[in-house]
Amino acid sequence: MLSRRWHPAEALFWAGAVAAAFLFPRQLLLMNEIAILALFALSLDLILGYAGIVSLGHAAFLGMGAYSAGFVALHVASDPLLGLFVGMAASGLLGLVTSPLVLKGNDLTRLMVTLGVGLLMLELANALSFITGGADGLQGIMMGKLFGQFEFDLFGRTAYAYSLGVLFVLFVLARRIVHSPFGLSLRAIRDNPLRATASGVPRNWRLAAVYTLSAAYAGAAGALLAQTTQFVSLDVLDFHRSADVMLVLIIGGAGYLYGGLIGSIAFKFLQDIISGFTPQYWQFWIGLFLVLFVLGGREMIHGGIKAVLARLRVLKPGKRS
């Protein structure tokens, strides 16, 4: 089975995401946040789940995308798609430039290096206040109509449709890429770098390529965040962004693309529910959940998901390549 056809469950998932907009019209802003977090997690999954690159500084690319899109909206043009494109390009470039840093060393050095890059970007944004607005952030961002048609409204209708649409398009693209020969070579590197090299795979080029791609995806998430909240602050570069997105992938599971999507839904709802009944101490409960989840629940939940997938695979007629 070298090809991966769309499974009905996948269609159901996306139909559910669209239906949610009509079923819960008062939750659109939350759902918009979920879609953006999902895109951010999808971006991390590309390097973590498929290429085995761990990162604690992925917010650097989220922030780059957010500030670039915000800057475009304030000083160039208010068209959302232009800002999205610039945000992705700027983050992709940052990813390309910083990719040599993650090519060497083991997981620990990568964690430290990415953490370092994240901190550098935060301080840089703080210092370059004539561009970023420093601690005040970029304020007064006015977005133009999407496709010149749809105004961004207070309830988040356009925002959710926009974010979900971008998420879907980029998801389909990612799905295509991970199931391509290039994607297979990434999995080869993740599974066994020694063997990958001994099979003729130019490891560094492939990793640099996927790191750049992942950075551009994170940049798209950042751009969506800036455009739909019409505000960018230093918070987009904060460490908690990098940690949260890692958490999301841990909850949802890495390496099958839907992990980040499912994880972001779970994470945001958890956050929303807990902060609803204990606004001050929600982080305590999130922390407790995380500890219990990683210690015991993860195997159970992921084992369950895998078992279901295996069943589905068996049911499908085994097609020979």
Binding site: M1, R176, P181, F182, R187
Partner: peptide, 26 residues
Amino acid sequence: MTPLEMIAAVTSERLGLGTRGFSRLD
């Protein structure tokens, strides 16, 4: 991976397909 995927991974590299990010394996 499965044996199918592993052999395909090596073969695709030998055929110079490894940079193709948008084509399907089959």
